[in-house]
Design a protein around this nucleic acid. Structure first.
Length: 169
DNA sequence: CCCTGATTCGC
DNA sequence: GCGAATCAGG
């Protein structure tokens, strides 16, 4: 590549804009930064208004998607085999009542066929066993479970953490 | 070690 | 005139 009028003009422009010699060389193509610097000096335009920045190093580009580890999925203790679809929306149980203050519901022993939309679908016992059934209490806040089992399903981490702390005391 | 511009000097 | 090699520096 030679210094055509066009390339010299581009060099002048980019140099005036404050680009570094290597950046200009990359834009022009076919020349090294040494070539650019040499040309700049021969053109007597070495002095520049602004160094643009003391060190405008481009450095490596950040990855477009930093890849965030997927949030922990809903945890369900106990029998998960027949857990009705995990609902991601309610991340925490709306009530802040400590779980130990909630009355553990006595299972109504609802069979699968008897379940309806407003009943807690928390499975009790081993599926396939004779006495396998569902909690059957009134579901809580449109969740598939009653208040107690909603806590078990959606806020197990906090409760378990607190349990551990209380055991240590 | 990354980068910057400056200078030298053989081609 | 050109630019690689080298230098001094941030």
């Amino acid at each position: 590549m030679s210094w055509t009028d066009e390339r010299v003009e581009l060099l002048k422009k980019l140099w005036a804009e404050g680009l570094s010699a290597s950046q200009i060389a990359a834009q022009l193509g076919g020349v090294t930064r040494n070539a650019v610097i040499g040309k700049v000096h021969r053109l007597n335009l070495s002095g520049r208004a602004k160094p643009a920045s003391s060190t405008p190093r481009p450095r490596k580009v950040r990855s477009a998607t930093p890849h965030r580890p997927a949030s922990r999925s809903t945890f369900v203790s106990g029998n998960t085999a027949l857990k009705v679809h995990a609902q991601p929306t309610p991340r925490r149980a709306p009530a802040q009542v400590p779980i130990e203050d909630l009355v553990v519901p006595i299972s109504l022993k609802v069979s699968l066929l008897a379940l309806n939309d407003q009943m807690c679908k928390w499975p009790v016992g081993d599926p396939g066993a004779e006495d396998f059934h569902f909690c059957g209490h009134r579901s809580f806040n449109s969740l598939p479970y009653c208040e107690y089992h909603s806590r078990l399903a959606y806020q197990p981490a906090n409760d378990r953490r607190r349990d551990r702390r209380e055991k240590e005391l």
